[in-house]
Amino acid sequence: MSHLRYVPTEFGQIAYREDGAGDGLPLLLCQRFRGTIDDWDPAFFAPLSEHRRVIRFDSAGIGGSGGSVPPTIEAMGHVAIAFLDALQISRADLLGWSLGGIVAQHAALQAPHRFRRVIIAGSGPGGAAEGPAPHPKVREVMAHPHNGPDDFLFLFFHDSETSRTAGRNCLRRLAGAGQTVPPVSGPGFIGQLKAIAADTGVRERLADLAMPLLVANGVHDVMIPAFRSYLIAQSAPAAKLILYPDAGHAFLFQYADEFASEINRFLSEV
């Protein structure tokens, strides 16, 4: 496991890990709701770091970072930019998963000159009343004080033996990698929930996301239905959409090699 590092920002001390190297632009990873830097499946980020510098970080008030969870997702975007400032990184590629995907859209709109290419995984633009709704059990399961293996499989993988087997394999890899930063605290959990509830989304601004976008999801995502990913691809002018079969919210871990290869191709394009 890569060394845990810290850097001070105006939002508090930010915890992060770096993997890989190279002279190209680094890839910044924005994590999901209730996730920390140690909740990225190594099967996914390891093939990314073979080609470039990959940076995982905990936003303010989450995991190993100090400070408090910002009151809005828009402000979480400012944390990501302040973190890049603290590392003296003037330009980067950006990947956001789930809540991190919404953060990534806000950050890319706030400072489009800072991000060359953006990957949005298992996310949506907000502000979408039409289309499929999340599974009715999602809110109840997400509210559990601790999400055990059964909750994890329900929220992140499709209800098929193939997908659930992939989910159990993912859990074993995460357990083997170890958890060295604290899990998301009660106040952090509540802060994220409040920020999500307050967010009005960026749907009306998607046309301003002019940089190349790679948008992806699993076709059976129970939390953020794949239709929301389609909405991003429909309105952002340079977006490409990929949907993965027999997969849910954690399609990027179920199809780790395939999606990492897709990302590597996308980031290598001129």
Rank of each mutant, 00 (worst) to 15 (best):
185 S>A: 06
184 V>H: 05
189 F>V: 11
204 E>T: 14
206 L>H: 06
210 A>Q: 15
211 M>K: 10
187 P>T: 10
184 V>P: 04
207 A>M: 04
205 R>Q: 15
207 A>L: 09
189 F>Y: 15
190 I>M: 12
194 K>Q: 15
191 G>T: 08
197 A>D: 14
208 D>F: 02
217 N>T: 12
196 I>R: 14
184 V>N: 04
209 L>M: 08
212 P>K: 05
219 V>S: 05
219 V>E: 15
204 E>Q: 15
188 G>K: 10
194 K>M: 12
198 A>K: 10
223 M>N: 04
195 A>N: 02
201 G>V: 08
209 L>E: 06
199 D>S: 06
200 T>S: 13
206 L>E: 06
195 A>F: 00
210 A>S: 14
185 S>M: 03
189 F>K: 11
183 P>T: 09
205 R>A: 12
199 D>Q: 07
203 R>E: 11
187 P>D: 13
196 I>V: 15
206 L>R: 07
188 G>C: 08
200 T>C: 11
218 G>V: 02
221 D>T: 04
217 N>I: 00
198 A>V: 03
223 M>G: 12
207 A>D: 12
188 G>E: 08
195 A>C: 02
191 G>R: 09
206 L>K: 07
194 K>T: 11
188 G>F: 08
192 Q>A: 05
189 F>G: 00
193 L>W: 11
202 V>D: 08
220 H>T: 06
195 A>Y: 00
185 S>Q: 04
200 T>A: 13
191 G>D: 10
211 M>E: 11
199 D>V: 09
216 A>V: 02
212 P>V: 05
183 P>Q: 08
199 D>P: 03
197 A>C: 00
218 G>Q: 06
194 K>V: 05
213 L>I: 09
199 D>K: 09
211 M>N: 05
207 A>H: 14
196 I>H: 01
199 D>W: 12
189 F>S: 09
198 A>L: 06
205 R>L: 08
189 F>C: 07
204 E>I: 00
216 A>E: 03
217 N>W: 00
213 L>D: 02
184 V>W: 05
206 L>A: 08
208 D>R: 15
211 M>Q: 15
